[in-house]
Nucleic acid binder design. Structure first.
Ligand SMILES: NC(=O)c1ccc[n+]([C@@H]2O[C@H](COP(=O)([O-])OP(=O)(O)OC[C@H]3O[C@@H](n4cnc5c(N)ncnc54)[C@H](O)[C@@H]3O)[C@@H](O)[C@H]2O)c1
Ligand SMILES: NC(=O)c1ccc[n+]([C@@H]2O[C@H](COP(=O)([O-])OP(=O)(O)OC[C@H]3O[C@@H](n4cnc5c(N)ncnc54)[C@H](O)[C@@H]3O)[C@@H](O)[C@H]2O)c1
Lengths: 219, 219
DNA sequence: GTGAGCTTGTGCGTTCGTGCACAAGCGGTA
DNA sequence: TACCGCTTGTGCACGAACGCACAAGCTCAC
């Protein structure tokens, strides 16, 4: 329905959104592409082109309506409805994620926590009791969970990913440092902290400039 | 000295490295670009082209020497020497990062922890006492710290980034959801979990496939 | 020594992203 | 009503990345 939005643009929309939320809180009603570009740390022309994919709602000579733009971006990203999330693997990282409020406040409430360790099952973290991985299927269906976050060791990541897909999760975010295979229909994104550090290592060593957000690409 | 390596390639080197470490542990001596491509989840031609930037050390008809390749990649990424890291902001995320062993084992030992809260200063996490942010300068110089990890709230991120740069840190990894400005000479990478979820939201909503590692770009 | 069978290294066409630069268009002013 | 200044929307050209496809080159067998 909505027209096709380029990957690079999609990756920037959340940044624009964050900047706009900030702007809105200061009472600003309108914003120019130049001002937004400044806040988001990108080129003004890029901002205009990106926004043009959402439909052309700017007013020449004036700029964009902040509130309206926020709604447009929210719609494009599917933030108009809440997307329930399950975290699998309640170790160091899983616990930190569970405690973090930034997900719920951005439309991704964490509704279930899962682990394989008997010692962890039953523990309550941030108001949610940890369930056993064997019950994943039931849990996902019960809460209509759409997103699975993998925070298990790398060895377990593929098994967990398979289980999530089988249970009906529609997209996956993985923190495990391993290559995962999922069906084409399930969007998968990876965050690998050690990899990030190694990339920094290269640029640092070469003493060459290389600032960069972590935009995505690939098929 | 080493020839210029494209950004996209640099971002993949750590993945190759991980796959090679795995291979080496199984006793494999040689590996073909096709096999490595399979492990890393990329195209075989891309593997060959990527590796060719490191110099041309493959043997036609045979493949690449696993151990030698590991050394080559390690050198390119600057992993031949240990790179000390400081974590700033010891809340949920900072604590999880401090407990994580994956950094030290990959050449990035965490040698200092810093926070602004009096309540946290002095606490010992994973064998390291938390220091006060005011002492950052001294700490960085004392330990010859090269990388700063920012795990503070977004509001404090820019101040912390400035302090890190002033103290002499050479590159920065930030988890704060905010746009940071640093000198061109300081490589900066951002990891924003909420943004990742929002990006997933888009593809999920469109039910279109969009797997992807998080490769970087930008000037 | 010669040939068969692999695997590397890379040239080339294609696609995607970027940002400059400018015409189109809106609002306010005289 | 006519004009001026500002901002959007986009055509265009450049560059980066990708992956196919093939020649070059190595090893082994006979
Ligand atoms: N902690 C960090 O800061 C950090 C940083 C970078 C990457 N990571 C990665 O994130 C992942 C988790 O890290 P961590 O430090 O939290 O590890 P952890 O060992 O503390 O926790 C892992 C948890 O996963 C659970 N688990 C194991 N197998 C499981 C399975 N099959 N199903 C469900 N749960 C299972 C374990 O019981 C444990 O509670 C790892 O892949 C790690 O490499 C963590
Ligand atoms: N916890 C998560 O799972 C998670 C997930 C995504 C993003 N983040 C981001 O990571 C950052 C940290 O998250 P958190 O959950 O750990 O927050 P937190 O509130 O638990 O911890 C923040 C810590 O930073 C310290 N701090 C504040 N100002 C400081 C300053 N000027 N100098 C040094 N230290 C300072 C605080 O004392 C506190 O200990 C936030 O920006 C958050 O948005 C966290």
């Amino acid at each position: 329905m909505a027209r096709e939005i380029p990957d690079a643009t999609v990756a920037r929309l959340p940044i624009y959104r964050r900047s706009l939320v900030e702007l809105a809180s200061t009472g600003a009603e309108m914003v120019s592409s130049a001002a937004l570009a400044d806040l988001a740390g990108v080129n003004a022309a890029k901002v205009r082109k990106d926004l043009s994919y959402l439909g052309t709602y700017g007013v020449r000579g004036v700029g964009y309506d902040v509130k309206f733009l926020l709604r447009q971006i929210g719609d494009a990203l599917g933030l108009d409805i809440e997307t329930p999330v399950v975290i699998v693997g309640m170790g160091n990282l899983g616990q930190a994620l569970a405690h973090y409020g930034g997900f719920s406040s951005r439309g991704f409430p964490i509704v279930a926590l899962v682990d394989a360790s008997e010692a962890k099952v039953g523990q309550v973290v941030d108001g949610i009791a940890i369930s056993h991985i064997d019950d994943l299927d039931t849990i996902v269906k019960e809460h209509a969970i759409a997103v699975g976050i993998i925070a298990t060791p790398a060895e377990a990541a593929q098994i967990v990913a398979d289980a999530l897909v089988a249970a009906g999760v529609r997209s996956i975010l993985s923190f495990a440092p391993s290559v995962l295979h999922v069906p084409e229909t399930v969007p998968l994104r990876k965050v690998d902290l050690a990899t990030e550090l190694q990339i920094l290592g290269y640029y640092q060593q070469r003493e060459s400039p290389a600032e960069g957000g972590n935009t995505d690409k690939s098929a």
